[in-house]
Amino acid sequence: MQMKEFKVKWGMVIDVDKCTGCGACMVGCQVENNIAPMTKKDPYNYVQALTWDRDDASNKLKTLTWLYVYELSNGKSFPEHETAYLPRPCMQCGNPACVPVCPVVATEKNEEGGIVSQVTPRCIGCRYCMAACPYHARYFNWWDPIWPEGMDKGLSPSTAVRPRGVVEKCSFCHSRYLDAKDQARQDGNDPMDLPDGAYNTACADICPTKAITFGDLNNPEHKVHELAKGKNAYRLIEKLGLDPQVYYTSEREWVRKLGDNYNADGGAHGAPSNSHG
């Protein structure tokens, strides 16, 4: 497969050793991207008695969590047990598995910056991309978004609200990139050479431990450029060859090993498990 290369390559380096799993990033992401809270009842459904309730937020197959923090375990018993938290946005793969399977070109990797786009008005909801993504980074709108009364007046201008029936995913808060470019133009700077921090995602912004660092992987003046090359840096299931633009770093060997756990020991038992928590 041909890899698309871009002059600018937005990427993340997530320090697993700094993530406490507090979840502020997940809330910040939902707010920035207009992901509605999960409500059971649909006030516009006038035959509620005849229909099922909408899904509960604890059913993680039906929630929309563009960024999800997974709980990792080293699989050992007390007292050798250790935990770690791993935030998982869309990996914005260099060689995405989701793009070629889309029958309507609603997702593509084609723009400077290398962000894999997802255009929901074009999406027909076939969910091939979800099946293709090994990172479970894509989500299907099983239900229409419903904000409890009054809550929809405070929507973010950053992201269009999606109806049910389409697939969506993390966009690296892409409209902030467009905003940053406008700011650069306004200030007379080159929009294709943004300084470190001029464009930052909502999750990276809000993270209290600054576990998420965001920037241009190709730009030596951006922190991520070096961080991604650190000796403890790794990517998830790297051996699949999808070339993710999200890097992780951890001094803990078991965490790094879990990151490439795909068939880690040839399918034998005893590999550490990661609880889907």
Partner: peptide, 29 residues
């Protein structure tokens, strides 16, 4: 519509907790 940290304040340094991150939604609840 949203809440973010305050870089200039030593209590935040840019970060906030998950409860306050949802402040506007609670305000409009």
């Amino acid at each position: 519509f949203g809440t973010e940290g305050n870089m200039d304040n030593p209590l935040s340094g840019g970060g906030i907790c998950p409860l306050c991150a949802n402040g506007v939604q609670v305000k409009n609840s």
